[in-house]
């Protein structure tokens, strides 16, 4: 197994990494659309540039920087959305673009920090190394186990948090656990698909799976399968026609979504 892994070329590694993210995108993307968190995902993505620059500036592991900033911004959003002064979409928009602006300033102005902005926007899945893959699959195992354990609570809190709270579901705990999982997945996936497309990769397979599912569980499984198909098809297209890989994967997922629309809903 290890030998086989070590012998993988860059395409094999990239495919393995993409499949790991697609597996995670099924359940997390579904939860995001059920909870109307698409904009939340965009805000998280826009904030990661600051994490990247800070990590380079402080010379720490890039993933720590990305995860730290994701977690910080996700927590800020969770707390700010609760106040009633400003509408929550305004809060997310404000936070999203402020963080992006600070990130861009840091990335271009701080001495010694050189960020490949284009690579950051589109991702560079072909550059993943074995260390990235190990981290991705570690997160796959941890997140899937956590989802398995928290699933009933997550669903109850998604449908109605007040009702769940009255029935004794630890809603706060469950929501924080989800935020930490999302922050971790954004931190690893940014490097692969980039800021512009990360939310799409999470949400489109889930939206495409909706019409094929009659229960939340079948929906997340179909979403993961669709994500994997999109990754494989996107790779083929990318290799065949020299398309950028991240966008090719998202385009493949969007095609699945459109094909799903042609089918009668279950």
């Amino acid at each position: 197994m290890i030998d086989w892994l070590m012998q993988l070329d860059f395409i094999g590694r990239a495919l393995l990494a993409g499949l790991g993210i697609a597996i995670l995108a099924g359940p997390l993307g579904s939860l995001m659309i059920w909870r109307r968190m698409a904009y939340f995902g965009d805000t998280l993505a826009h904030s990661t540039l600051l994490g990247l620059s800070l990590a380079l500036m402080l010379q720490i592991n890039v993933y720590f920087g990305l995860f730290g900033i994701s977690l910080l911004v996700a927590s800020l959003m969770a707390l700010l959305v609760r106040q009633k002064w400003v509408a929550s979409d305004a809060i997310l928009g404000l936070l999203s673009h402020t963080m992006l602006a600070i990130g861009l300033i840091t990335a271009t102005q701080v001495r010694g920090v050189r960020v490949d902005l284009l690579g950051y926007l589109y991702g560079d899945i072909l550059a993943v190394n074995m260390q990235d893959i190990a981290l991705i699959y570690l997160i796959v195992v941890v997140v899937i186990s956590a989802l398995f354990y928290l699933w009933r609570w997550l669903l109850a809190a998604t449908v109605d948090s007040d009702l769940a709270r009255c029935e004794g579901v630890p809603v706060e705990f469950t929501n924080w656990a989800l935020i930490i999982m999302l922050a971790a997945v954004f931190a690893i996936a940014i490097k692969l698909v980039g800021v512009l497309l990360i939310t799409a990769l999470l949400i489109i397979p889930a939206a495409a799976a909706r019409r094929f599912a009659r229960s939340p569980e079948t929906m997340i499984i179909i979403a993961s399968i669709f994500g994997c198909i999109a990754v494989v098809v996107g790779f083929k297209a990318s290799l065949a026609w020299d398309w950028p890989t991240g966008p090719a994967i998202v385009a493949a997922a969007a095609t699945l979504f459109v094909l799903g629309l042609l089918r009668k809903a279950v």
Partner: peptide, 20 residues
């Protein structure tokens, strides 16, 4: 209480979400 239309949930499943 409104359930997002992108969430496939039957009445039976909605009821079973109650821990009791």
């Amino acid at each position: 209480l409104s359930v997002e239309s992108l969430m496939p949930l039957t009445v039976a499943r909605f009821l079973m979400l109650s821990p009791g």
